[in-house]
């Protein structure tokens, strides 16, 4: 498995060989092909570009965009913006945690949902708001959140 990933990543980052300033581009490329950037892939990127491994990990862990584990089938984006905060995003998050067993930045054990926090979805009038994939859900309360997640989960991928 690891060997396979390594070979694939080595191929992907060939155009960036020795180009330290292209680190983010190379990581983007890896993530868009693999869906995430596991440790084995980070090691290959470091080697190919001539960047210290500590700096590759630093960049991957700094940007929320990069992930080190595969994403779930569905992505829940919970708004943590000001309006949603005031209207009870905390309670919504708690409900998500209860329903899926994981909080922000994590993927449920069944691989169904990845939960992310975002800042203002531009739908403050509907606060508190979350998106599940491309669908927006507003005026959430703990009960409704759980119902939505159950329905989406039932429909599968």
């Amino acid at each position: 498995m690891t060997v396979e990933i390594e070979a694939r990543v080595a191929e992907l980052v060939k155009p960036y060989a020795g180009k330290r300033s292209e680190l983010i581009q190379a990581l983007h490329r890896v993530q868009s092909e693999l869906g995430h950037i596991p440790k084995a892939a980070q090691a290959v990127v470091a080697e190919a570009l001539g960047v210290p491994p500590s700096q590759v990990t630093g960049v991957v862990s700094f940007y929320h965009f990069f992930r080190t584990a595969p994403a779930g089938q569905h992505t829940v984006r919970l708004c943590l913006g000001t309006a949603c905060h005031v209207r009870g995003a905390e309670r919504v998050l708690k409900a998500i945690q209860e329903e899926l067993g994981v909080g922000l930045g994590a993927t449920s054990a069944d691989g169904m949902f990845t939960v992310e926090g975002v800042r203002c979805l531009g739908a403050c009038g509907l606060a508190p708001v979350m998106m599940v994939d491309d669908e927006v859900y507003g005026r959430l309360d703990p009960k409704r959140v759980k119902r939505i997640l159950r329905e989406v989960g039932k429909d599968g991928g």
């Binding site: 440790k39 090691a43 470091a46 491994p53 500590s54 630093g58 862990s61 700094f62």
Partner: peptide, 27 residues
């Protein structure tokens, strides 16, 4: 260049290489 900053803000940790245990850090 073994040590680096991993994560951000108050969650930042000083980590060796790819977040490896210090004892395993190749560099």
């Amino acid at each position: 260049m073994t040590w680096g900053f991993a994560g951000r803000g108050i969650f930042t940790l000083i980590e060796a290489d790819l977040g490896d245990p210090w004892g395993d850090a190749k560099t």
